[in-house]
Structure formats: C-alpha cells, structure tokens
Amino acid sequence: MDVLIFIVGGTLAAATALIFAAMGELVAEKSGVLNLGIEGMMATGAAMAFVVLSLSGSYTLGFVAGAALGMVLSLVHAALTIIFRANQVASGLAVGILGLGLSSAIGKRYEGRTVAGLPENGIPFLSDIPVIGPMFFQQDIMVYLSILLIPATWYVLNRTKLGLTIRAIGESPEAAHALGLKVRLIRTGCVAFGGAMAGIGGAYMSTAYTPLWAEGMIAGRGWIVVALTVFGTWMVGRVAFGAYLFGSISLLELSIQAFGLNIPSQLMSALPYLVTIVMLAIISRNPTFIKLNSPASLGATLKLS
C-alpha cells in the first residue's frame, strides 16, 4: 500500500510543473500562437522564484515573481509575432534561448543552493481517509491548484464565450477579424497566460519538486510540454494524461535506481520522454480528432488586406 501511495503521490508531484506549463501552452496554441520558448520561460521562472524565495522567505512572492517573469518573456514573443509578425518558430526559439540565458544570469550566485521545499498541506478530513487520503490529499498547495487547473482550462475553452473566441481565432484569425473579434488582443492574452503558467511550472520545480537552483534543472521539460500539447491533439484531457504519464515514468526511474537494478542511467533518464511521446502518438492517430481539435491556423500571423 505504501508503494501505491508513493507512486500516486509522487506522480502528482512530478507532473505538476508540466500541468501548469502545458495548460498554458495549450491555451496559447488554441489561439493560434506556437510558443517554443516554454523551456526558457520555465527556467527563468524557476531561477526567479528561487532567488525571490531565498531573499524574502515567501513562497507566494516566489511564485508571483516566477509567473511575472515568465509572462514578461512571453510578451516579448507576443510582441514579435503578433505585432511585428515575426515567424513564430524563430521568435519562440529566440525568446527561449534568451530565457535560458536570463535564468543562468539570475541564478548565478545561487547555483547549487537549496531552500526548504513548499510544505505539504493536508486537506482536513480528506487527508485522513485511509490510502486515498495520503495519496491525493497530502500534497502541497500547487499540486491541488494544478489539478484544478485541468477542468478549469477545459471549461473555459469549451464552455465559455471566451473559449469559443479563442478557438475561432486559432482556426481562422482572418475570419475572426472580419467578425470584429479582437484577434491580436486575445492572442496576446493567451500567450501571456501561457508564459505565466510556464513561469509557475518552473517555480514549482525550483521551490517544491527539487527545492534547489541548478542551471539546466528544467532539463527539457519545456520541450516535453510542447510535445504534450501537439501529441495530446490539443485536448485538455489527453495533454493532462500525457503529463501524468511522464510524471509516473520519471518516478519509475527513481524507484528502479532505488531497487539497484543495473540499467544505464542515461537510458532511464530518457525513458519518460520516450514513453510519453510514443504513447501519445499512438493514442492520437485518429485524424478526425486531430482535425477537430487542432488549431488550423497555428503558427500563422493575422493577414489583413
């Protein structure tokens, strides 16, 4: 039973950073803006949150600072692609690289330091339920928020006028503009949301999941987020599933090391990335689903005659 509790609890924690960043990227892509700078935004968010937390001792301030810096970076991407109509791939890569550099500059003097991790917050009554309690309700606050973010994202995208507008803009920005929808404003908002969520995801990495700062600690998770969004065919549920799959396999990696099995560690480290992408690619073969859910104008700037 303890093993199960360890696995479920650990998976939730391991997936949290991905859930935040992936929901943000999903919203941005649904509006038609591809953001390849997630890795850099997560790294910057992680460094900023770690530094602010170290200086102030406040987790709230740390997360706010991480989110804010992630958002600022994403707004650079938004300005380049939405106002100046730069290529989204090139701009995203550039801003991502900028973010990685920025994170190393911000965290320079903190390299290798640790902080106390975000404390766990048992939910009263629920956490006392045997098995289920420790599995789900003995986590830190950000895990709960990330879980709530999933249905919230789904609801906004699929059941609100705002979500309808976002999806319409992602399918055809020209048609949306002709209807008088504020294409640039909404796209900028979606990108900013994505940046803030990436920042929070990064902040979670450096202040809760592994409460330390080391350059490169995001270790490709930003890229996994981009892959999750695409291979999850832009469906909230599938993207979240991919994130949890990634989380559980990274946990497996730790367990196998603990059991002392002699598998090359490089292979083990690569495993979560491989399995997640292969799994999502397999469940996402249905072309109908892809056509229905993919933002048709992803990567395209609004063209006005």
């Binding site: 999806r167 399918e171 048609a175 949306a176 002709a178 209807l179 929808l181 056509k291 048709a296």
Partner: peptide, 14 residues
C-alpha cells in the same frame, strides 16, 4: 468566414 470546427450556433454566437 465560418469556423469549421464549430457548430452553426457557435459560429453565429461569435
């Protein structure tokens, strides 16, 4: 200037 992935009513509601 219709959105293919949306229903008729959703298109109009925009």
């Amino acid at each position: 200037s219709l959105f293919e992935t949306l229903t008729a009513a959703e298109n109009i509601s925009l």
